[in-house]
Protein backbone atom coordinates (compact mmCIF):
# COMPACT_ATOMS: atom_id res chain seq x y z
CA UNK A 1 0.00 0.00 0.00
CA UNK A 2 2.75 2.38 -0.78
CA UNK A 3 1.88 5.68 -2.24
CA UNK A 4 3.41 8.49 -4.21
CA UNK A 5 6.36 6.73 -5.79
CA UNK A 6 7.18 8.71 -8.89
CA UNK A 7 9.59 5.98 -10.04
CA UNK A 8 6.84 3.41 -9.99
CA UNK A 9 4.68 5.73 -12.04
CA UNK A 10 7.28 6.35 -14.74
CA UNK A 11 7.93 2.63 -14.85
CA UNK A 12 4.27 1.88 -15.29
CA UNK A 13 4.00 4.36 -18.16
CA UNK A 14 6.72 2.50 -20.03
CA UNK A 15 4.76 -0.71 -19.60
CA UNK A 16 1.36 0.90 -20.09
CA UNK A 17 1.95 2.17 -23.60
CA UNK A 18 2.53 -1.17 -25.35
CA UNK A 19 -0.20 -2.71 -23.21
CA UNK A 20 -2.62 0.01 -24.31
CA UNK A 21 -1.78 -0.55 -27.97
CA UNK A 22 -2.28 -4.30 -27.58
CA UNK A 23 -5.60 -3.76 -25.82
CA UNK A 24 -6.84 -1.47 -28.58
CA UNK A 25 -5.95 -4.08 -31.20
CA UNK A 26 -7.74 -6.96 -29.49
CA UNK A 27 -11.13 -6.76 -31.29
CA UNK A 28 -9.26 -6.90 -34.60
CA UNK A 29 -7.53 -10.11 -33.54
CA UNK A 30 -10.10 -11.80 -31.37
CA UNK A 31 -13.24 -12.09 -33.46
CA UNK A 32 -14.79 -15.03 -31.66
CA UNK A 33 -17.80 -13.68 -29.79
CA UNK A 34 -17.24 -15.91 -26.75
CA UNK A 35 -13.69 -14.77 -26.16
CA UNK A 36 -14.32 -11.12 -26.94
CA UNK A 37 -17.38 -11.25 -24.70
CA UNK A 38 -15.28 -12.71 -21.92
CA UNK A 39 -12.80 -9.91 -22.44
CA UNK A 40 -15.54 -7.29 -22.17
CA UNK A 41 -16.79 -8.89 -18.97
CA UNK A 42 -13.26 -8.79 -17.59
CA UNK A 43 -13.01 -5.09 -18.45
CA UNK A 44 -16.30 -4.34 -16.73
CA UNK A 45 -15.37 -6.14 -13.51
CA UNK A 46 -11.92 -4.57 -13.63
CA UNK A 47 -13.54 -1.12 -13.80
CA UNK A 48 -16.04 -1.96 -11.02
CA UNK A 49 -13.34 -3.37 -8.74
CA UNK A 50 -11.14 -0.35 -9.38
CA UNK A 51 -14.05 1.96 -8.52
CA UNK A 52 -14.79 -0.04 -5.36
CA UNK A 53 -11.17 0.17 -4.36
CA UNK A 54 -11.37 3.98 -4.18
CA UNK A 55 -13.81 3.62 -1.33
CA UNK A 56 -12.51 0.39 0.19
CA UNK A 57 -8.81 0.45 -0.50
CA UNK A 58 -8.05 4.16 -0.30
CA UNK A 59 -10.64 5.31 2.21
CA UNK A 60 -10.69 2.04 4.15
CA UNK A 61 -14.46 1.43 4.07
CA UNK A 62 -15.15 -2.17 3.03
CA UNK A 63 -18.49 -1.54 1.34
CA UNK A 64 -20.82 -4.45 0.70
CA UNK A 65 -23.46 -2.26 -0.88
CA UNK A 66 -21.89 -1.24 -4.18
CA UNK A 67 -24.47 -3.23 -6.14
CA UNK A 68 -26.82 -0.37 -5.22
CA UNK A 69 -24.74 2.12 -7.20
CA UNK A 70 -24.34 -0.37 -10.03
CA UNK A 71 -28.12 -0.74 -10.08
CA UNK A 72 -28.73 3.00 -9.96
CA UNK A 73 -26.48 3.42 -13.01
CA UNK A 74 -28.11 0.56 -14.91
CA UNK A 75 -31.70 1.56 -14.13
CA UNK A 76 -31.18 5.29 -14.65
CA UNK A 77 -29.68 4.87 -18.10
CA UNK A 78 -32.27 2.25 -19.09
CA UNK A 79 -35.34 4.06 -17.76
CA UNK A 80 -34.33 7.46 -19.13
CA UNK A 81 -34.00 5.84 -22.54
CA UNK A 82 -37.18 3.76 -22.41
CA UNK A 83 -39.41 6.41 -20.87
CA UNK A 84 -38.01 9.68 -22.15
CA UNK A 85 -35.87 8.64 -25.11
CA UNK A 86 -32.77 10.11 -23.50
CA UNK A 87 -29.60 8.61 -24.96
CA UNK A 88 -27.89 6.21 -22.55
CA UNK A 89 -24.69 8.17 -23.13
CA UNK A 90 -26.38 11.00 -21.31
CA UNK A 91 -28.20 8.57 -19.03
CA UNK A 92 -24.83 7.23 -17.94
CA UNK A 93 -23.85 10.69 -16.76
CA UNK A 94 -27.18 11.25 -15.02
CA UNK A 95 -26.87 7.85 -13.33
CA UNK A 96 -23.34 8.67 -12.23
CA UNK A 97 -24.51 11.98 -10.79
CA UNK A 98 -27.40 10.30 -8.97
CA UNK A 99 -25.19 7.55 -7.59
CA UNK A 100 -22.58 10.11 -6.66
CA UNK A 101 -25.15 12.03 -4.64
CA UNK A 102 -26.29 8.79 -3.03
CA UNK A 103 -22.68 7.82 -2.32
CA UNK A 104 -22.05 11.21 -0.74
CA UNK A 105 -25.10 10.79 1.48
CA UNK A 106 -24.04 7.29 2.51
CA UNK A 107 -20.51 8.54 3.11
CA UNK A 108 -21.81 11.36 5.27
CA UNK A 109 -23.89 9.10 7.48
CA UNK A 110 -21.46 6.19 7.77
CA UNK A 111 -18.13 7.97 8.14
CA UNK A 112 -18.14 7.48 11.92
CA UNK A 113 -18.75 3.76 11.70
CA UNK A 114 -15.76 1.51 11.92
CA UNK A 115 -15.00 -2.05 11.05
CA UNK A 116 -18.00 -4.37 10.97
CA UNK A 117 -20.46 -1.56 11.60
CA UNK A 118 -19.53 0.12 8.35
CA UNK A 119 -19.76 -3.18 6.51
CA UNK A 120 -23.21 -3.90 7.95
CA UNK A 121 -24.50 -0.40 7.23
CA UNK A 122 -23.48 -0.59 3.57
CA UNK A 123 -24.88 -4.09 3.35
CA UNK A 124 -28.23 -2.90 4.69
CA UNK A 125 -28.20 0.06 2.32
CA UNK A 126 -27.59 -2.28 -0.62
CA UNK A 127 -30.47 -4.49 0.43
CA UNK A 128 -32.82 -1.51 0.78
CA UNK A 129 -32.06 -0.55 -2.82
CA UNK A 130 -32.49 -4.16 -3.93
CA UNK A 131 -35.88 -4.42 -2.22
CA UNK A 132 -36.87 -1.19 -3.92
CA UNK A 133 -35.76 -2.50 -7.33
CA UNK A 134 -37.75 -5.71 -6.86
CA UNK A 135 -40.90 -4.13 -5.49
CA UNK A 136 -41.23 -0.76 -7.16
CA UNK A 137 -42.79 -2.47 -10.14
CA UNK A 138 -44.33 0.65 -11.70
CA UNK A 139 -40.80 1.92 -12.23
CA UNK A 140 -38.60 -1.15 -12.60
CA UNK A 141 -41.08 -3.84 -13.64
CA UNK A 142 -39.66 -5.79 -10.68
CA UNK A 143 -38.22 -9.22 -11.27
CA UNK A 144 -39.50 -9.20 -14.86
CA UNK A 145 -36.73 -6.79 -15.71
CA UNK A 146 -36.34 -4.25 -18.48
CA UNK A 147 -35.37 -4.94 -22.07
CA UNK A 148 -33.51 -2.39 -24.14
CA UNK A 149 -34.59 -2.36 -27.79
CA UNK A 150 -32.23 -3.97 -30.23
CA UNK A 151 -30.42 -1.74 -32.68
CA UNK A 152 -30.77 1.61 -30.96
CA UNK A 153 -27.69 2.80 -32.78
CA UNK A 154 -24.36 4.30 -31.78
CA UNK A 155 -25.96 7.55 -30.62
CA UNK A 156 -27.87 5.46 -28.10
CA UNK A 157 -24.89 3.35 -26.99
CA UNK A 158 -26.68 0.30 -28.41
CA UNK A 159 -24.58 -1.56 -30.93
CA UNK A 160 -25.39 -4.69 -32.90
CA UNK A 161 -21.91 -6.18 -32.59
CA UNK A 162 -19.99 -6.45 -29.36
CA UNK A 163 -16.67 -4.98 -30.50
CA UNK A 164 -17.73 -1.38 -29.68
CA UNK A 165 -18.40 -2.49 -26.11
CA UNK A 166 -14.81 -3.61 -25.85
CA UNK A 167 -13.75 -0.03 -26.52
CA UNK A 168 -16.33 1.47 -24.19
CA UNK A 169 -15.28 -1.00 -21.49
CA UNK A 170 -11.67 -0.12 -22.08
CA UNK A 171 -12.54 3.57 -21.79
CA UNK A 172 -14.38 2.87 -18.55
CA UNK A 173 -11.42 1.02 -17.09
CA UNK A 174 -9.05 3.77 -18.22
CA UNK A 175 -11.35 6.31 -16.56
CA UNK A 176 -11.48 4.48 -13.22
CA UNK A 177 -7.73 3.86 -13.25
CA UNK A 178 -7.08 7.47 -14.23
CA UNK A 179 -9.27 8.74 -11.41
CA UNK A 180 -7.53 6.40 -8.99
CA UNK A 181 -4.09 7.63 -10.00
CA UNK A 182 -5.25 11.25 -9.91
CA UNK A 183 -6.67 10.80 -6.40
CA UNK A 184 -3.53 9.08 -5.15
CA UNK A 185 -1.37 11.93 -6.33
CA UNK A 186 -3.71 14.60 -5.02
CA UNK A 187 -4.27 16.09 -1.63
CA UNK A 188 -7.34 13.87 -1.21
CA UNK A 189 -5.28 10.72 -1.78
CA UNK A 190 -2.75 11.62 0.87
CA UNK A 191 -5.51 12.54 3.29
CA UNK A 192 -7.34 9.27 2.71
CA UNK A 193 -4.26 7.19 3.33
CA UNK A 194 -3.43 9.26 6.40
CA UNK A 195 -6.96 8.73 7.75
CA UNK A 196 -6.76 5.03 7.08
CA UNK A 197 -3.42 4.74 8.83
CA UNK A 198 -4.34 6.80 11.89
CA UNK A 199 -7.43 8.91 12.11
CA UNK A 200 -6.47 10.82 15.27
CA UNK A 201 -3.08 11.80 13.94
CA UNK A 202 -4.59 12.85 10.62
CA UNK A 203 -7.16 15.04 12.35
CA UNK A 204 -4.49 16.65 14.48
CA UNK A 205 -2.70 17.56 11.25
CA UNK A 206 -5.79 19.29 9.91
CA UNK A 207 -7.31 16.51 7.82
CA UNK A 208 -11.10 16.84 7.67
CA UNK A 209 -12.54 13.36 8.05
CA UNK A 210 -16.08 13.88 6.80
CA UNK A 211 -15.12 15.77 3.69
CA UNK A 212 -12.55 13.18 2.63
CA UNK A 213 -14.75 10.15 3.23
CA UNK A 214 -17.74 11.75 1.53
CA UNK A 215 -15.62 12.61 -1.49
CA UNK A 216 -14.19 9.10 -1.77
CA UNK A 217 -17.60 7.50 -1.36
CA UNK A 218 -19.19 9.78 -3.97
CA UNK A 219 -16.45 9.27 -6.55
CA UNK A 220 -16.49 5.51 -6.06
CA UNK A 221 -20.29 5.41 -6.34
CA UNK A 222 -20.38 7.55 -9.49
CA UNK A 223 -17.80 5.36 -11.25
CA UNK A 224 -19.63 2.21 -10.20
CA UNK A 225 -22.83 3.63 -11.70
CA UNK A 226 -21.00 4.19 -15.00
CA UNK A 227 -20.26 0.47 -14.90
CA UNK A 228 -23.97 -0.18 -14.36
CA UNK A 229 -25.00 1.89 -17.37
CA UNK A 230 -22.36 0.09 -19.42
CA UNK A 231 -23.71 -3.29 -18.33
CA UNK A 232 -27.28 -2.30 -19.23
CA UNK A 233 -26.39 -1.24 -22.77
CA UNK A 234 -24.07 -4.19 -23.31
CA UNK A 235 -26.42 -6.95 -22.10
CA UNK A 236 -29.48 -4.90 -23.14
CA UNK A 237 -31.55 -6.47 -20.40
CA UNK A 238 -31.48 -5.73 -16.68
CA UNK A 239 -33.30 -7.11 -13.66
CA UNK A 240 -32.69 -6.85 -9.92
CA UNK A 241 -30.89 -10.18 -9.68
CA UNK A 242 -28.25 -9.12 -12.19
CA UNK A 243 -27.78 -5.57 -10.91
CA UNK A 244 -28.77 -4.81 -7.31
CA UNK A 245 -28.42 -8.27 -5.77
CA UNK A 246 -26.08 -8.71 -2.79
CA UNK A 247 -23.95 -11.19 -4.78
CA UNK A 248 -22.94 -8.39 -7.14
CA UNK A 249 -21.54 -6.42 -4.21
CA UNK A 250 -19.66 -9.50 -3.05
CA UNK A 251 -18.24 -10.20 -6.48
CA UNK A 252 -17.00 -6.61 -6.90
CA UNK A 253 -15.23 -6.87 -3.56
CA UNK A 254 -13.90 -10.34 -4.31
CA UNK A 255 -12.29 -9.25 -7.56
CA UNK A 256 -10.61 -6.27 -5.91
CA UNK A 257 -9.41 -8.26 -2.91
CA UNK A 258 -7.93 -11.09 -4.94
CA UNK A 259 -6.05 -8.54 -7.02
CA UNK A 260 -4.85 -6.34 -4.21
CA UNK A 261 -6.84 -4.07 -1.95
CA UNK A 262 -5.48 -0.53 -1.87
CA UNK A 263 -3.14 -0.95 -4.82
CA UNK A 264 -3.73 0.93 -8.07
CA UNK A 265 -3.62 -1.90 -10.57
CA UNK A 266 -4.48 -4.78 -8.24
CA UNK A 267 -8.27 -4.68 -8.59
CA UNK A 268 -8.04 -4.67 -12.39
CA UNK A 269 -5.55 -7.51 -12.23
CA UNK A 270 -7.99 -9.34 -9.97
CA UNK A 271 -10.61 -9.25 -12.73
CA UNK A 272 -8.15 -10.78 -15.17
CA UNK A 273 -7.64 -13.66 -12.72
CA UNK A 274 -11.10 -14.09 -11.22
CA UNK A 275 -13.50 -13.59 -14.15
CA UNK A 276 -12.02 -16.12 -16.64
CA UNK A 277 -11.40 -18.54 -13.78
CA UNK A 278 -15.04 -18.21 -12.81
CA UNK A 279 -16.17 -18.82 -16.39
CA UNK A 280 -13.91 -21.86 -16.77
CA UNK A 281 -15.02 -23.31 -13.46
CA UNK A 282 -18.65 -22.77 -14.36
CA UNK A 283 -18.24 -24.40 -17.76
CA UNK A 284 -16.26 -27.26 -16.30
CA UNK A 285 -18.03 -27.99 -13.03
CA UNK A 286 -21.33 -26.13 -13.18
CA UNK A 287 -22.53 -23.22 -11.08
CA UNK A 288 -22.53 -24.70 -7.57
CA UNK A 289 -19.07 -26.28 -7.47
CA UNK A 290 -17.64 -23.26 -9.27
CA UNK A 291 -18.94 -20.98 -6.54
CA UNK A 292 -17.56 -23.38 -3.92
CA UNK A 293 -14.10 -23.07 -5.39
CA UNK A 294 -14.59 -19.32 -5.70
CA UNK A 295 -15.41 -19.14 -2.03
CA UNK A 296 -12.45 -21.31 -1.17
CA UNK A 297 -10.20 -19.03 -3.18
CA UNK A 298 -11.57 -16.01 -1.33
CA UNK A 299 -10.93 -17.63 2.05
CA UNK A 300 -7.42 -18.71 1.16
CA UNK A 301 -6.55 -15.29 -0.29
CA UNK A 302 -7.76 -13.27 2.69
CA UNK A 303 -6.09 -15.63 5.14
CA UNK A 304 -2.79 -16.05 3.33
CA UNK A 305 -2.46 -12.80 1.40
CA UNK A 306 -4.95 -10.21 2.70
CA UNK A 307 -3.58 -7.58 0.36
CA UNK A 308 -4.06 -9.75 -2.68
CA UNK A 309 -1.78 -10.96 -5.39
CA UNK A 310 -0.37 -7.53 -6.16
CA UNK A 311 -0.10 -6.61 -2.49
CA UNK A 312 1.92 -9.74 -1.94
CA UNK A 313 4.27 -8.89 -4.79
CA UNK A 314 4.66 -5.30 -3.57
CA UNK A 315 5.49 -6.45 -0.09
CA UNK A 316 8.09 -8.83 -1.40
CA UNK A 317 9.67 -6.07 -3.44
CA UNK A 318 9.57 -3.68 -0.48
CA UNK A 319 11.18 -6.32 1.72
CA UNK A 320 13.96 -6.88 -0.77
CA UNK A 321 14.49 -3.16 -1.14
CA UNK A 322 14.60 -2.10 2.48
CA UNK A 323 16.03 -5.33 3.81
CA UNK A 324 13.62 -5.14 6.72
CA UNK A 325 10.45 -7.04 7.46
CA UNK A 326 7.41 -5.13 6.25
CA UNK A 327 4.62 -4.07 8.51
CA UNK A 328 2.64 -7.07 7.32
CA UNK A 329 4.88 -9.34 9.36
CA UNK A 330 3.10 -8.19 12.49
CA UNK A 331 -0.31 -8.81 10.99
CA UNK A 332 -1.58 -12.18 10.04
CA UNK A 333 0.93 -14.02 12.16
CA UNK A 334 -1.34 -13.72 15.19
CA UNK A 335 -3.77 -16.37 14.07
CA UNK A 336 -1.58 -19.44 13.80
CA UNK A 337 -2.05 -22.05 16.47
Amino acid sequence: MSLGQPNGLRWSLVVALPVAVALLAIPAVVTDVFWLGLGITVLMWAALATAWNISAGLAGGLSLGHAAYFGVGAYTATLLFLRLGVSPWLGLLVGAALAGALGAAIGAITFRLRGPFFVLATLAFGIVVHIAAVNWRELTRGAAGLLLPFGGGAQNMLFAGIAPYWYIGLGLLALTLGVTVAIRRSQLGYYLVALREDEDAARALGVRVVRCKVAASAISAALTACGGAFYATYIQYIDPSSTTQFEISVQIALVAIVGGLGTTLGPALGAVVVVPLGEILRAWLGGGPALMLYALMLIVIVLAAPYGVLGLLQRLVARLRSGRGPRGAAQGSGGRA
Binding site: L62, I299, V302, P306, Y307, Q331, G332, G335
Partner: peptide, 12 residues
Protein backbone atom coordinates in the same frame (compact mmCIF):
# COMPACT_ATOMS: atom_id res chain seq x y z
CA UNK B 1 -8.52 -14.33 11.41
CA UNK B 2 -7.75 -13.19 14.95
CA UNK B 3 -5.56 -10.12 14.83
CA UNK B 4 -5.60 -10.13 11.02
CA UNK B 5 -6.55 -7.06 8.97
CA UNK B 6 -10.22 -6.17 8.78
CA UNK B 7 -10.56 -7.37 5.21
CA UNK B 8 -9.62 -10.87 6.38
CA UNK B 9 -12.08 -10.87 9.25
CA UNK B 10 -14.99 -9.78 7.05
CA UNK B 11 -14.33 -11.79 3.94
CA UNK B 12 -13.21 -15.05 5.50
Amino acid sequence: TIGAPEVTVVFA
